[in-house]
């Protein structure tokens, strides 16, 4: 058994180098396809992260009557906090609201006209972040019924549009990733098949001299795995080289998009390695099968 595995690995290694050009072509195709796949995968993840970011921006803003006492406000905040749809609640007092507004004006470089006012024209507000933006209307109506709430900004139509858009983008992303995956599968399997077919004569001789199926198959399977592994490593190397400048470009392009991409690197590595080795093995397996004993 050990001798057989060693034999297969040695033959795979020999086969790889004796047909160096073919192996190189297969490996480069593998790199190209894996890069394509990984590219789409990362893109998909960035897209999903940005969509989540956009959805998190959905906020219910309820303006509070100026006559409301601090106790009433606290009661409202506590009540809203208790709602299961609510992620977090923040109370913005009138002074704070004015400060925020002034900051925004300053940031935009516009003159601050509020100083000419003799009193603060802004209302205090309760800003509610939702766990799920599709729960917007329920939360809006619940808060709007409260006596101390003056008005609730209704952004239902906008939120609906955002939600439709994000769900379309999500499905399209998954569909495109699936299509790219199938294309990658066929091209890699076909490339490995070419490498195997190029050695049809060798396989024929093996059969004629009485080699068992295992002795014919496994060296090619190991060789397919070798091509897959090598292709995956080169792809990961390229991605690693490209990731730093790319993410910097993204950050400057989107003007600081606070996206959480912690697990993407690990997932991409697993995807590239798994797809590469898996398809190399699969391609070799189905290609050699044609030549085995009928």
């Amino acid at each position: 058994m050990v001798a057989f595995v060693l034999f297969s690995i040695r033959r795979a290694w020999q086969g790889f180098w004796r047909n160096a050009l073919m192996s190189l072509a297969a490996t480069l195709t593998m790199v190209l396809m894996l890069t394509l796949l990984a590219g789409f995968f990362v893109l998909q993840n960035v897209l999903l992260a940005s969509l989540t970011f956009v959805e998190q921006k959905v906020e219910v803003v309820a303006y509070v009557q100026n006559t409301a006492t601090q106790d009433q406000v606290n009661a409202l905040v506590a009540k809203v906090q208790a709602m299961p749809e609510v992620a977090s609640v923040q109370f913005v007092s009138r002074d704070q609201a004015l400060a925020n507004f002034r900051q925004t004006l300053a940031a935009q470089g516009r003159p601050d006209l509020t100083t000419s006012l003799d009193q603060n024209p802004l209302y205090a507000s309760v800003n509610v972040k939702l766990r799920d933006p599709s729960q917007l209307s329920a939360v809006v109506s619940a808060i709007g019924d409260q006596p101390i709430v003056r008005s609730v900004i209704n952004i239902q139509a906008l939120v609906d549009r955002v939600l439709t858009f994000t769900s379309v983008v999500r499905s399209a992303g998954i569909a495109i990733l699936g299509i790219v995956g199938v294309i990658v599968l066929f091209i890699i399997v076909n490339t490995i098949r070419l490498a195997v077919v190029a050695r049809a004569e060798e396989i024929e001789i093996m059969r004629l001299v009485g080699a068992s199926d295992a002795f014919i198959r496994w060296p090619f399977v190991f060789e397919g795995a070798l091509v897959g592994l090598l292709g995956a490593m080169i792809t990961l190397g390229l991605l690693l080289l490209a990731s730093q400048p790319l993410s910097q470009a993204m950050v400057s392009f989107f003007n600081v998009l606070p996206i959480e991409l912690g697990s993407v690197g690990r997932d991409t590595t697993a995807l590239v390695l798994g797809t590469g080795v898996g398809l190399g093995v699969l391609g070799a397996w189905v290609s050699v099968r044609t030549y085995l004993i009928r």
């Binding site: 001798a3 057989f4 034999f7 004796r18 004569e201 060798e202 024929e204 001789i205 093996m206 004629l208 001299v209 009485g210 080699a211 068992s212 002795f215 014919i216």
Partner: peptide, 30 residues
């Protein structure tokens, strides 16, 4: 393995020596 086959076109592996071509038949049968 009980039948030796010989063909008009020899069917030798071009990159192996005479010795390796013959040994190949034994190697691939374990």
């Amino acid at each position: 393995r009980k039948i030796g086959v010989v063909f008009q076109d020899f069917k030798l592996l071009p990159r192996k020596t005479v010795w390796e071509n013959v040994a190949f038949a034994l190697e691939v049968t374990g």
